[in-house]
Nucleic acid binder design. Structure first.
Length: 267
DNA sequence: ATGGTTGTGGTACAA
């Protein structure tokens, strides 16, 4: 079973890329972030044509938005409001193998890494804290769960092109890394990327639009993640972050992350 | 050190 997560930065602007990605990489379950469209404007027809018989979307006009499409049976379990506001940043489903899958779009956090000066940064930290508390209290680490999405934090030194240059840049500040680590400890999540590709290998899923030569300069960050709980660690059969979609014309600034999983091998 | 680009929706804001 192949599961992919992709921040596509507008599903309507990127529908052709989604079709190409599905044809070339064939995910059974496709999780999207930053769809940027209200639910009644979502191009669900295109996804049905790609063979996805089930879906759940949670969107709003212009900003945010998450979606899950599946060619295997899913049961929609949620979509929670975080930090007391509906902003379409989370949905969850049960997938085959009795696995609960959570798709998140964590707030980016603005430009200034200080909650006193920048409300968006405070919101990001509070969002991560609420995730920690929720997974520690409302969920059990021993259950089969997957969490994936654009978590907007690059935790390790090898998750960014320059640790030193990014220490004060939102996405890699020590306080954000601490908050993300607290989320990870809340359900003893295993980071699929680093299970297969351990540090210190450099691994990125995002490159800024602002670089005139994103691939040559390679100033990337690993903002997109797939985590699994302990019963699923032995069920993982492969992981990849293919760079091809970032090379396509008019791309998203994120490239997909892909996990292959054999639910029959789950503990 | 600074500014660089993109999508949405409407000429500003979020990323």
């Amino acid at each position: 079973m192949r599961i992919a997560s992709w921040n596509i930065n507008s599903v309507r602007a990127r529908i052709g890329h989604v079709e190409r990605f599905v044809k070339e990489f064939a995910p059974d379950i496709l999780c999207l972030q930053e769809t940027k469209v209200a639910d009644d404007g979502f191009p669900t027809r295109a996804f049905a044509d790609l063979g996805y018989s089930a879906h759940v979307v949670a969107g709003q006009k212009s900003y945010n938005g998450v979606a899950i499409f599946s060619r295997v049976p899913i049961e929609v379990t949620g979509g929670r409001d975080w930090c007391g506001r509906y902003d379409a940043r989370h949905i969850s489903v049960i997938i085959p193998g009795d696995i609960e899958l959570h798709n998140f779009y964590v707030p980016a956090g603005g430009d200034i890494p200080d909650r006193a000066e920048n409300e968006k940064f405070g919101h990001k930290l509070d969002f991560l804290t609420e995730m920690s508390e929720w997974f520690a209290t409302a969920r059990r680490a021993g259950d089969r769960m997957i969490m994936l999405g654009d978590l907007n934090v690059a935790p390790h030194e090898s998750d960014v092109w320059s640790h030193k240059a990014l220490l004060k840049v939102v996405s890699h500040t020590p306080i954000e890394v601490e908050h993300l680590e607290a989320v990870q400890q809340a359900a003893r999540w295993c980071d699929a990327a680093r299970h297969f590709r351990p540090v210190p290998e450099k691994l990125y899923s995002w490159w800024s639009y602002r670089s005139p030569d994103w691939e040559g300069s390679d100033k990337g960050r690993r903002l997109d993640h797939i985590w699994v709980t302990e019963p699923l660690v032995g069920a993982m059969t492969g992981f990849d972050i293919p760079k091809e979609p970032r090379r396509w014309e008019k791309p998203s600034d994120h490239t997909p992350v892909i996990l292959d999983l054999d639910p029959d091998r789950a503990a």
